[in-house]
Amino acid sequence: MNNIGYRIFVIGAGFSVPAGLPTAAELYGLVKSRIESVYGTDTKFHRSLDEFIDYKQSTCNVTLTHDDVDLEEFMSFLDIEHYLWLEGSDTLSSKGNGAQLLIKKFIGQIIHERTPVATNLPQEYIEFAQNLKTTDVIITLNYDVILERALEFVGKPYRLFTHRFKSTHDYGGTIDDNKEEVVILKLHGSLDWFTNEDYLGSIAAFKKQNYHELPRDPIFNNNNKYAPIPLVDGSRTSDDPLKFIHRLSNLDSFYENFDPPSVPMILSPSHMKIVYANPFISFWHGLGMSGGFNLGINIIGFSLPEHDDYLRVCLYKMIKNYLYFQWDFTLNGVEKDNVKIVDYRVTDEAIEQLKQTYSFIDEQKSAFYLKGFSSDAVKFLFD
C-alpha cells in the first residue's frame, strides 16, 4: 500500500455525481428553467438561443427546439462570438456576453444548492480525503467545492495553487516548501471564486478623475458581506493573474440571492473553454513534465470527451512520463502502481468505449473500476 503519496488524481464530473450534483446532460435544463424563473423568456439568453438554433439549421441542417439544445455546443457558439467580439460594442466584458453571464452565475447557484454541507457528504468523500497525503496533487475539472469541504472536515491542509514562494522576482521566485498541503488545481475555475480585477480598474479610473469615493461592487465594496479572501497568499509575481482571484467565505449568503449579484470565475462548459484559460494558466505550467517521479496516477469520473484535445494532450504526456520514465522507480520501498481509472460503465459497449478512449495507456499497467465512485472505489484507488 502507498502510504506516502506522491500521486496525481485527475477528477471529472463522475466524482461528484454520488453527492447529488447534476450531470452535464441535466445542467442545461436546470439553468434554462432558473433563468426563466428569474427573468422570464425575453432575455439575451433566449435571443442567443434562437440565433444558435437558426445557425444549426442553416449550416448543419439540424432542427432543434429550446429544450433539446446541447449546452456545450451552445456555449461554444457563444464563446466564439464573445472571444472574437463578433457583436462589436455589444460585447459586455471580459467575463462574457449577456447570455454567458446569465448561464455562468446560475450554473454556480445550481451546483451550490446541490452540494451537501460537510457533515452530509457521502462517506466515500470523507474516506477519500482521509487517504490523501500532503504529497498528492489533485487536478480537478469540476466547479464544485466537495473536495475542499471533505478535506476541511477531516482537518487536512490544502492549497488551491501550485507553489508558495519565499520571494519573487521578474522571472519567477524561490519556492517555499515549508507547509505540507494537498495541492488542488481547479483547471476550470470554481463556483466560489470571484475576481476583483475590474473593481481595482474602476478604483484607478476614479482616481484619475479625482473622484475619491470607492466604486460600487456587490462583493468587494459591500461591507464584507460575503467575506472574500485571496486565493493565494505569500509573495507573488506582479503579473500573476491569480492575485486578483478571491474565494467567498459566506457562499450560502451569496447564492441565496434570488439573482446572484456577480459571476463566478468558471470557464464555460464549452468546446472552446481553453481560450479563456489565462487566469488559471499557471495551473498548467509544467504538467506535461510531471508523472515521471510520481508513484501513482488515478483518473476518477472523467471520460475524456473527444473535443477536449487540450486535456488529452496533457494526460498523454503525463501518463507517458509515468509509464516510460523509470517504471521501476521506488521511494521508501514504495513502487509505482498501475494507472487506475474509476468510472461508471454498465454495458460492454460503454466499457469498450472507455478503454478505447484511454488506449494510449499500456494495458498491462492499467486497472479499471467501473461501478462508479464509492467506498469500494476508494479502496481500489488506495490499496
Rank of each mutant, 00 (worst) to 15 (best):
F153E: 09
G189W: 02
T237G: 02
N210K: 14
K179E: 14
Q130T: 13
L132K: 06
G172E: 06
L248C: 07
H169N: 15
P260S: 09
Y226W: 12
I245R: 04
N223C: 05
N178T: 15
N210A: 11
N196P: 01
S202D: 14
S235T: 01
L187S: 11
N131S: 12
P241E: 08
N131F: 01
Q130L: 15
S190K: 07
Y143T: 11
K186R: 14
I203E: 05
F254D: 05
F128P: 06
K186I: 08
P260A: 03
F244I: 02
Y211Q: 11
Y226V: 08
D233F: 04
F244H: 15
T162F: 00
K186H: 11
P260W: 01
E213C: 06
V137L: 13
P230H: 09
A129F: 10
D192N: 15
F254K: 06
P215C: 08
I146D: 01
K133Y: 10
V263R: 03
L200P: 00
P218V: 04
A150M: 11
S262R: 08
G201C: 05
T168G: 05
S262W: 10
P157R: 02
D192P: 12
L242M: 15
Y158N: 06
N224D: 15
E213Y: 09
Q130E: 15
F153K: 14
I175T: 11
P261V: 08
N178E: 15
S167H: 07
D252M: 00
K243N: 07
D136E: 09
T195A: 13
L242S: 14
N224K: 04
D198V: 07
F165L: 10
N224P: 02
N250R: 12
L231P: 06
D176S: 06
P264Y: 02
E213N: 13
L132G: 06
I203T: 00
F244W: 15
Y226L: 06
I203Y: 05
L191Y: 07
D144T: 04
N250T: 02
D239M: 07
H169P: 00
I229M: 10
L200A: 03
H246C: 12
H169S: 10
S249L: 00
D192I: 13
F153Q: 11
A150V: 12
F244D: 11
V145Y: 09
D233E: 14
L242H: 09
L242K: 13
G234H: 00
A204D: 12
Y143M: 09
H212F: 15
I175F: 01
R149I: 00
N131Y: 01
F244G: 07
D240I: 02
R216L: 13
L185Q: 10
G172W: 10
S249Q: 11
T168L: 06
E213Q: 13
D198A: 14
L231K: 12
K207I: 02
T134D: 14
F254Y: 06
V154D: 03
L248G: 07
F244Y: 15
A150Q: 09
K156E: 12
N223E: 14
D198F: 02
